[in-house]
Design a binder for these strands. Structure first.
Length: 423
DNA sequence: TCTGGGGTCCTAGGACCC
DNA sequence: TCTGGGGTCCTAGGACCC
């Protein structure tokens, strides 16, 4: 049985181009939150030598000289287009794993009598035509090899977007051409160690003795090793298990000293965590709030603290979670520092069955869950209109992200949809 | 001036138990 | 001189992913 990996090409840039065709053929990059680092590049931007993850200010000169077009991240737009891609893909296979916003694994179990190259070509054409987002497809005996194949499909136009590794010869040839640092599961640390012993390609890696892998890279490294050799060790996860941890945190557009503004941010993060809990029908058992100053500013006094609170009763009620998050904040807040980042993390999560009745507190009340359902319904339909007063106004808050080059919410905001039509 | 956010899994070592 | 041993659970930290 074979696995497929579908990867959207330069996904965020492709999303921006979809609604602004004048960007085609030009160097375009998309920045992370707060316009910090480069997280997506068009091919033209890659050719200029712009690396993934580079801080934007470090390449300002390059951007100016080559008139690179820069966007802030527009996650609402990207998530919407991602859903369209995933929905189309689901029509082609029985089993699909949405692996990230721009990648999905497909299972080709039961496709023994198919010409997978033809079928793969059909998938790639349908998605590209149906959504406007170009994609590449890699097919092989394991997930790790499918990832390798997809990189070849993307890199060499002759493949027409589909690359299949289905013989020993092709597997070995592909691995000899594949840099070890690009292998799925081998990160920076292991790359450094591997390079130090002369391992450059994925093929070199597969020639190491298994004992070396076990000693230095644990069972995850062993899985990667076997998968590259063609033995499938990582299965498709069709319905991903619910999250074991939920986190919302942000760096601020500008540093914050004021407790009340920090409280607005922390309340909003807590609200976001509560929403995510309800979306997977779970309850928070225990949460953490953290705040810290700007680590990069060696010239300023530094402060960093967190606090963990066990909730009296597991809950997904926004009001409860905000209440306890603010208690934590007031315990750790120390005046006189300039804070750069804060966050709320739900560390322990339970489902309805897991809620232990507490002798002295009421368990999740019907009233609370009905209210939350109503709020989620309204916010789902009309954008996040309902919030607690302590979260402050969404329009003029000091803690919001810096997004100086944001594109319009083309697909989700009616005003922007009308604007496209008028243009 | 300016350096992302949200996750997962694995391991080593300490605490604790009988 | 001698100062158990084995099992389990928890946590912090490290590695990885997109």
């Amino acid at each position: 049985m074979k696995f497929g990996l579908v990867d959207c090409n330069n996904f965020y840039v492709s999303c921006e181009r979809l609604f602004n065709p004048s960007l085609n053929g030009k160097a375009v990059v998309v920045l992370s939150n707060n316009d910090g680092c480069v997280v997506a590049r068009s091919n033209e931007a890659k050719s200029l030598g712009i690396q993934m993850g580079t801080p934007a200010f470090q390449i300002q000169e390059l951007i100016n000289r080559h008139e690179v077009i820069v966007f802030s991240s527009n996650y609402t737009l990207y998530a919407d287009l991602s859903n369209r891609v995933m929905t189309l893909l689901a029509g082609f296979v029985e089993e699909q794993e949405v692996y990230s916003i721009d990648e999905a694994f497909l299972s080709f179990a039961g496709f023994n009598n198919y010409n997978l190259y033809d079928y793969g070509t059909k998938i790639v054409r349908a998605v590209t035509k149906g959504t406007g987002i170009p994609v590449s497809l890699g097919i092989a005996d394991t997930k790790t090899l499918a990832k390798v194949a997809s990189k070849f499909a993307k890199k060499y136009p002759a493949y027409n977007g589909v690359c299949i590794i289905d013989t020993e010869e092709k597997r070995e040839k592909a691995l000899r051409l594949f840099p070890v640092e690009d292998v799925w599961g081998i990160g920076r640390k292991h790359t450094a160690r591997l390079k130090s012993i002369g391992v450059k390609t994925a093929y070199d890696f597969t020639q190491l003795p298994l004992s070396w892998i076990k000693r230095h890279m644990s069972v995850t490294g062993e899985r990667t090793y076997k998968e590259l050799l063609g033995e499938s060790c990582i299965d498709i996860e069709t319905n991903p298990p619910s999250k074991k941890q939920i986190c919302t945190s942000r760096s601020f557009g500008e540093m914050i000293s004021d407790r009340d503004i920090l409280a607005e941010a922390v309340s909003s993060f807590a609200d976001s965590c509560a929403r995510k809990l309800r979306a997977q029908k779970t309850y928070a058992v225990c949460l953490m709030v953290f705040i810290h100053t700007n680590y990069f500013r060696k010239d300023l006094p530094q402060y960093s603290r967190n606090m963990i609170i066990r909730l009296p009763v597991p809950t997904s009620d926004t009001r409860e979670i905000i209440h306890h998050a603010l208690i934590a904040l007031d315990t750790i807040f120390c005046p006189g520092f300039q804070y750069k980042k804060a966050g709320v993390i739900i560390l322990e999560i339970t489902n309805k069955e897991g809620i232990q009745m507490n002798l002295f507190e009421q368990p999740v009340s019907d009233k609370s869950s009905k209210l939350m359902q109503a709020i989620d319904r309204i916010n789902g339909k009309h954008g996040k209109k309902i919030r607690l007063a302590v979260q402050g106004s969404p329009d003029h808050s000091q803690w919001h992200l810096k997004q100086e080059m944001l594109s319009p919410q083309y697909t989700t905001n009616i005003k922007d949809i009308l604007r496209i039509k008028c243009d």
